[in-house]
Computed example of a mutant assay.
Amino acid sequence: MSRHRRSEGKKGGIRRAENNKIYAHPIPLVFLQSYVALGLSRHIVLNPCCEGYWDPLTRSVWVTNPKDSAILWQRGFFGKGNLSRSEPSWLSRQVNARKAALSGKVTSEEITTKRREQRKRFKMDRANAIAAAAAEAEEAFRTGKTVTSSIIIPSGATWKPAEKTPEKGPPTISQSNNRQEEDSGDLNSIVDVEHLQLTPQEAFFLIWCFDCLSIMSPQTDEGMSLQEIWIAFQTCYMDQRGLNPEPALQLRPDNPFLVNYVAYHHYRSLGWTIKSGVKFCVDYLLYKRGPVFDHAEFALLICPTYEDLADSDSPTRGTRDISWSWLSTINRVNSQVMKTLILCYVTIPSSALVTTEMLGSPKCLAYYSVREVTVRRFIPARMRD
């Protein structure tokens, strides 16, 4: 047992060292130090020039170049693969699946799919057995007979999947060799159809703070200016049915893009890695280093608050009304997964202070403020002391 534990620790140490090497840079910029004469040194900043396309329907920026996707993910965990859970790894998973098919092994995804199919089949068998037993009991009650049911309702401990009919005999040696040659040729013919998706908050943070991303317009296929990007990210959250031909006239200080970006910029500037928290019913998840190293420690819930209550009469779509029952539900969900819930109150400035012209540029962000409140679940049985 001690030898097994020692081997697990060795494997974990190797994997951790490899991750530290791959994700050594927390931001897209790379700082190199070069020495000159007389013992003096200077820093050289390497700024990548990534490129993406703006898609207003999905409210995201698509980075289709695999090299740019790798840079943005490995240097700060920006974006998400559209065919993956987080890291864009669709191509590597397809290659591993082909290699596993060649060697006759089963991938972890295939094992998960098989377990899900068995769980679904078990639930269907149990539901059919319960329905049959209920129908038999109802028939016995109607006829006045004694219920002597022979139906056994399966349980998770005793149920076993039905055995499938055996397939035909194994292929011959020539057939297996031909199949291996065909599959080995298919490994190089797999086309990577996955792209990295950046949220408007992530994309604008990369543009405004690091100037390492350029966004192309899908209509003209030309680069968009900072002003055009700023307006486009706000108008994508508006109701397109009543949109004015001049989007700047419709801008409001409580736009969801502005509120979310204020919180995103605040925590990114403090060194946190921020990812989407929709899985746990919150807006963002805060990681100390990134999802590769550890789980998120904090769950962030953005709560817009108005400086002038008169502006809350006609809020933009995206602001929310918080109730105690809803807050208790979210707190319960995040407490079960060992995450501390943080209420991030973003103060929306008054419309009299921030005019429509000011909302047309990022200068309006100076009038927003952020406050945090930590929410912990009270458990009487554990907190008596």
Rank of each mutant, 00 (worst) to 15 (best):
I231T: 12
Y264Q: 02
K123P: 02
Q219Y: 10
I274N: 00
G223H: 02
I215N: 00
D385P: 13
Q74L: 06
E167K: 09
K288N: 11
C50V: 07
S2N: 10
R241F: 08
D221I: 06
N177W: 04
N177G: 01
L243Q: 10
R252P: 05
D239L: 04
S89A: 12
T235N: 03
L32P: 02
Q219G: 06
V262A: 05
R15P: 04
K164G: 13
D183I: 15
V354N: 01
P253C: 08
S369L: 03
L72P: 08
C236H: 03
V282D: 00
L32N: 13
Q219E: 12
S176P: 00
W326P: 00
R119C: 03
V147L: 15
G169L: 06
Q180K: 15
G79D: 02
R289K: 14
R5T: 11
G104H: 04
K80N: 08
I302H: 00
P253E: 01
A37M: 13
C344Y: 01
T319Q: 08
K11A: 14
K21P: 02
T113R: 15
G185M: 10
E136K: 07
P161Q: 06
W62K: 10
S176D: 07
V262P: 01
H266W: 05
V373A: 14
I44P: 01
E357I: 07
L46P: 02
T220P: 04
L249K: 13
L243T: 04
K120L: 12
